[in-house]
Amino acid sequence: MENFEPKIIGFLCNWCSYAGADLAGVGRMQYPSNLRVIRVMCSGRVDPTFVFKALSEGADGVLIAGCHPGDCHYTDGNYNTLKRIPLMLKVLEQFGVEKERVRMEWISAAEGSIFAGVVKEFTETVRKLGPYKRNGLERGGKVG
């Protein structure tokens, strides 16, 4: 697995986490390039379907980051995230997917270094887990 470069999709809320990622940039904090970011206005926009879709499309890990609870630009949109994602993780586990492949983080607009740290750590976690194996996609007859 040494040479495995995981593909990681990140959903970042515009107001805090995306700004935190920007700040990491401004601070020239170096982190692995595996993360690819999709900007949403609020982490509460993230439908678990997106996460499952990302995994089924070949992502090895998914990061969902929003404002700290209580800090949401939209008052309480991130509480939706805080409730949905744990339920999704339970379902994910039942599917036999390692929970560690999906990570929920609260990252503020001032936490550039925390963002960089999360990306580093998460990339390593996913790298260790290895590629996400998509199952059941083969046609029945050919799998035997």
Partner: peptide
């Protein structure tokens, strides 16, 4: 299923 998680999560 994913849609349901999204709905009842809220």
């Amino acid at each position: 299923g994913a849609k349901y998680i999204s709905s009842i999560g809220s």
